[in-house]
Design a protein around this nucleic acid. Structure first.
Lengths: 151, 151
DNA sequence: TATTTAGTTCATTTATTACTGAACTTAATA
DNA sequence: TATTAAGTTCAGTAATAAATGAACTAAATA
């Protein structure tokens, strides 16, 4: 196994740990180390030694999550893939969505405990406030990053 | 199924979606809606209708992640559990660790591409800078939350 | 129009992970 | 010291998810 192959497997394991499939992670790993931005479906298939079905569904998963981008070349019917240029912004959007989901579940807990007045309720309220805080801070953080990048 | 039972199942599904087991999520759901902070191992077992083994391993998983806390009552050999008071801080710590892991994997990609000079390399560099930014901003965010909470 | 090519779909297989239940450990009480 | 009680461990099973491979669609080319 070459260092690059080893690297690709490690990216697979890391992304699997954080919720994607191993194969989706491998695809990202391949794209991270690919010499060219023109990586075709077949390149992925050859490099990762996987079935068309697996490449297809995982490529589409990554496209849906906006972690990779698809582009075409005139006069060439193949599809080409590269890391999404806006992947960072997209990751932030995904995080924001999860914050909103967790906030909602804690709010439901509060509603179920509406008539109680104990330390747990204070705790739930604090957690909700925290998610409010994060929801408010995320766009500021985004802005700060944007400013820092362009200075 | 009572509204609370339905709620507990939903928390199970949400946490499963974000990387814990369904049972760990159910335990959190139960603790979120429990009237008392003194929830015993057996309370969990009865409420969630699960095996001792499953409660045991999931309670220990949640303890390890510092999402719940264990406490004892003098003269009582049972263990009691409640939502961790510091769970927010702990979630931040976990996030920070994942940021460090992702940064490291992108750094390895850079090292493998060291001799190239293309748009992908610039992209990798930007991603690494972004993770540096997050690493730097996380403690500031924590501080800001602390100040807002106590004002 | 027939053939090739690129990629999708989906039933089946394979792999992984979570849960159960029974045997076990440890410590408290009788 | 025997018994009970609380929780752990782990082998086996059940449930879930991912990968394969073959049949398929759609579009380009011969």
């Amino acid at each position: 196994m070459t260092p690059t192959e080893k690297y690709i497997e490690d990216v697979g394991l890391l992304y699997e740990k954080y919720g994607l499939t191993k194969m989706a992670g491998r695809i990202l790993g391949y794209l991270m180390t690919a010499k060219s931005d023109n990586t075709s479906f077949e390149d992925l298939r050859n490099a990762l030694k996987a079935s068309k079905g697996s490449i297809s569904s995982n490529v589409n998963l990554l496209l849906k999550q906006a972690l990779i981008e698809k582009h075409m070349i005139t006069g060439d019917r193949k599809s080409y893939y590269k890391l999404a240029f806006k992947s960072l912004e997209n990751i932030m959007e995904i995080k924001l969505k999860s914050i909103i989901e967790f906030k909602a579940i804690y709010q439901r807990a509060m509603e179920l405990c509406i008539n109680e007045n104990n330390s747990k309720n204070k705790h739930l309220l604090e957690i909700i406030k925290y998610y409010d805080f994060l929801e408010k801070e995320m766009p500021l953080l985004k802005l700060k990053w944007y400013n820092e990048k362009h200075s």
